[in-house]
Structure formats: structure tokens, C-alpha cells
């Protein structure tokens, strides 16, 4: 158990599920920029995490993580240093993130992506779903979401994966794998957020699974320079897109044309991944 009971997470918080995966790493140290996780981790002098945690300035996470990893290595101490970032942190530290990937820094980056700046009250982020309503996109976001994992894989780093809190066994398997590799490792975790997306707090896992089943979120791995779509996503039929979208208040305004456009974009993404897999 990494995250203790009585922490400050909201009901049905996907991050509180995601934290469980960290207990499968040897010698973990987690670094945290500003975000929901900062609050969940607790007020000084208490900590709701059973592993050492370092809070860092918002854009700094990948670089501080690498400094910590290097400092410990210099002192002969083994650790799995985890940069635990939200999608907001990805936006603001993007240059540090790509710098870290370029150097193949020995860290694990885990992005817990709830598709908006939730800690400041649901503002649009780089990964916010197309057309999703947030407080800074009240009529729906106009831009396409950022595919961070694919961008990281194109740095040709040792390990990149996408994961979901709806399929914890798959996520844990990927975390364990990442823990055994040296260099820059990146796992992008889909984290449906009840208050941010507008669904009941008992349905976090259900929504996360729907996203996988309709391929709005696709699970894959990039390892030894090879792409592979994960079995769960291969088995998913791509059904239930409309149900997935309309079960969230942020997307309930979508027209049939919007939904068709999303279906088209998802097919495009699937084809791209199938193509990458063949390489």
C-alpha cells in the first residue's frame, strides 16, 4: 500500500487507484509537481504516502528527478526515481520532459492524465478531449489533444507505454517492466475524473474501461524499439463510443456529427498504431 487511508483525494479519485502501482517498484522515490497529487499527499508534517516524496516546482519535475537519481547514483544508492506528473505538468514542463528523454535520463515518468487542470478547478489542458467543456473552454475545446506518449516514444527511449486505471493488472505489469529497465521510461495513464468530467464517483473504473472498449484510449507499449498494441486493446471491439462520450457531462453537448468526427479520428489513431506495430 503506497497511499494511506484517510488521504485528501475526492471520492472515486483515479489517482488514488493509480498510486497502488508504485508499490510494485523496488526502492521507489516519488517526485511531485503542483497538482491534485500534491494535495492527496498531505499537509506538512504529515504524509499520506508510505514512500519518500519530494514536492517540486511545477515545471521542474523531470529535471529534479534526474538530479536526484544521479545524486543517489553518485553516492552508490539504488533507487527508482518516479516523476509523478499530471497533464498540466506535462504542458508546463514540456521542454524539460523532452530534454530528459533526449538525454535518456534514468527516471520513470508516470503521467496521471485526467484530461484537464483539475486541481485549479477544471481548466483545459493539452490532453483535454476535443470538444470537451472546461471552465476555460465553456463551449468545448477547439484543439486536438496532445499525444504525449507517442511523442516520447519518438525520442527512441527504452520504454514507453499507455495504461489505464480501469485495467490495473496491465498497468502494474507495465510499471514492473519499467522498473527493471534503465534510462528514460514513460507511462501515460488514463485517469477519468468524476468531478472534472461529470460522472458519478462510483463509476471511475467503469468509465475508464468504456474508454478502452471504444478505443478512445488505446493501450500500447514501445519496447526494444518496437511498438505493440496491448492485448486488452486488441481484444476491444471499438464499440460503445457514443455511450462513453455521453456518459460524461463535459461531452453531453456533442452532436451526432461530432461523434462521427471523433469516431473517424479514433480510427485514424488506431490505423497509425497498427502501422507502427508492423515496423
Amino acid at each position: 500500500m503506497v497511499l494511506l487511508k484517510g488521504n485528501a483525494s475526492c471520492q472515486g479519485c483515479p489517482h488514488s487507484i493509480a498510486f497502488k502501482a508504485l508499490s510494485y517498484l523496488e526502492n521507489p522515490i516519488v517526485l511531485m509537481p503542483a497538482g491534485c497529487s500534491t494535495v492527496i499527499a498531505g499537509l506538512h508534517p504529515n504524509s499520506s504516502l508510505e514512500i519518500p516524496c519530494v514536492h517540486v516546482p511545477f515545471p521542474a519535475t523531470p529535471a529534479v528527478s534526474y538530479g536526484l537519481s544521479t545524486g543517489l547514483k553518485k553516492r552508490g544508492i539504488k533507487a527508482n526515481v518516479v516523476a509523478w506528473m499530471g497533464d498540466g505538468s506535462v504542458d508546463i514542463s514540456y521542454s524539460l520532459l523532452t530534454g530528459s528523454a533526449l538525454r535518456n535520463d534514468d527516471i520513470i515518468v508516470i503521467v496521471v492524465d485526467n484530461e484537464a487542470y483539475m486541481n485549479t478547478g477544471v481548466q483545459s489542458s493539452g490532453t483535454t478531449f476535443w470538444k470537451a467543456k472546461t471552465t476555460t473552454s465553456p463551449k468545448g475545446k477547439r484543439e486536438e489533444r496532445r499525444d504525449v506518449a507517442l511523442q516520447m516514444a519518438l525520442h527512441r527511449v527504452p520504454y514507453v507505454a499507455t495504461a489505464s486505471i480501469g485495467y490495473m493488472r496491465d498497468f502494474i505489469k507495465k510499471v514492473k517492466k519499467a522498473g527493471k529497465v534503465e534510462g528514460f521510461r514513460f507511462i501515460h495513464v488514463h485517469c477519468p475524473c468524476p468531478p472534472g468530467w461529470g460522472f458519478e464517483s462510483s463509476k471511475t473504473v467503469e468509465i475508464a474501461r468504456k474508454a478502452i472498449q471504444c478505443r478512445a484510449w488505446i493501450l500500447w507499449e514501445y519496447e526494444n524499439k518496437k511498438f505493440r498494441i496491448s492485448n486488452i486493446s486488441k481484444k476491444a471491439r471499438g464499440n460503445g463510443l457514443k455511450d462513453y462520450l455521453l456518459s460524461q457531462a463535459r461531452l453531453r453537448h456533442l452532436s451526432d456529427e461530432d461523434i462521427e468526427e471523433i469516431r473517424r479520428r479514433i480510427e485514424e489513431e488506431w490505423k497509425l498504431l497498427e502501422h507502427l506495430e508492423k515496423l
Partner: peptide
């Protein structure tokens, strides 16, 4: 020493912040 070629001054001091948290000299 480990000489880290960073992409900005922001990253330079951030790397050192991490290293000195771990007890290293930076």
C-alpha cells in the same frame, strides 16, 4: 563529476536541486 547538458537554466538549477536533495555536492 556528472556533467549534465540541460536545455535551459530552469532545468540546470532543477537538476542541481535534485542532486543536492540526495546529499550530493552540486
Amino acid at each position: 563529476a556528472e556533467f549534465v547538458r540541460v536545455e535551459s537554466e530552469y532545468a540546470a538549477l532543477s537538476v542541481i536541486l535534485g542532486a543536492i536533495s540526495a546529499g550530493a555536492r552540486g
